[in-house]
Deep mutational scan, measured.
Amino acid sequence: KELVLALYDYQEKSPREVTMKKGDILTLLNSTNKDWWKVEVNGRQGAVPAAYVKKL
């Protein structure tokens, strides 16, 4: 499985998103959308802005 690093804090704004903190390591589930990537963090799945994460 592919991992990404959170470059910034992000507070979810809808139920389809997830909150992450700078430095979090997230499991990347889907990166086909260039703006929003689906990730899993702390057992929750949701979208985060692609510009806020970097593939490891």
Results as ranks from 00 to 15, higher is better:
4 V>Q: 01
2 E>Q: 14
16 R>Y: 14
44 R>P: 01
45 Q>A: 12
3 L>Q: 11
45 Q>Y: 10
16 R>I: 12
36 W>V: 05
48 V>S: 00
9 D>S: 09
21 K>Y: 10
6 A>M: 03
40 E>A: 08
41 V>Q: 10
38 K>F: 15
40 E>R: 05
26 L>W: 02
27 T>N: 09
45 Q>F: 09
22 K>P: 03
12 E>I: 06
3 L>N: 06
50 A>D: 02
10 Y>R: 03
39 V>C: 05
6 A>E: 01
25 I>M: 06
22 K>D: 02
25 I>V: 11
9 D>G: 06
3 L>C: 13
34 K>P: 14
53 V>Y: 01
6 A>D: 01
38 K>L: 15
19 T>Q: 04
15 P>K: 10
54 K>M: 15
41 V>A: 12
38 K>P: 02
50 A>W: 01
38 K>Y: 15
14 S>A: 08
11 Q>F: 14
29 L>H: 06
36 W>C: 08
54 K>P: 03
40 E>H: 05
6 A>W: 03
54 K>N: 06
10 Y>C: 04
4 V>S: 03
56 L>V: 10
14 S>M: 07
30 N>R: 06
44 R>V: 09
43 G>I: 03
24 D>N: 06
56 L>D: 02
46 G>M: 11
5 L>V: 15
55 K>M: 12
50 A>C: 07
25 I>G: 00
34 K>S: 12
8 Y>G: 05
20 M>N: 00
10 Y>A: 00
46 G>T: 04
8 Y>H: 11
27 T>A: 09
32 T>K: 10
46 G>V: 09
11 Q>L: 13
56 L>I: 14
52 Y>M: 13
38 K>W: 15
42 N>G: 12
25 I>K: 05
13 K>W: 05
37 W>Y: 08
9 D>Y: 04
23 G>S: 02
49 P>K: 04
2 E>S: 12
39 V>F: 01
12 E>F: 07
11 Q>I: 14
13 K>N: 10
18 V>A: 05
40 E>K: 05
37 W>E: 01
24 D>A: 07
9 D>L: 02
30 N>K: 07
45 Q>D: 06
54 K>I: 14
47 A>R: 14
28 L>T: 01
32 T>D: 15
45 Q>S: 12
12 E>P: 14
17 E>M: 05
25 I>P: 00
30 N>G: 08
31 S>I: 09
26 L>D: 01
25 I>A: 02
19 T>Y: 04
52 Y>E: 03
14 S>E: 08
2 E>K: 10
10 Y>P: 01
39 V>I: 07
42 N>A: 11
31 S>M: 11
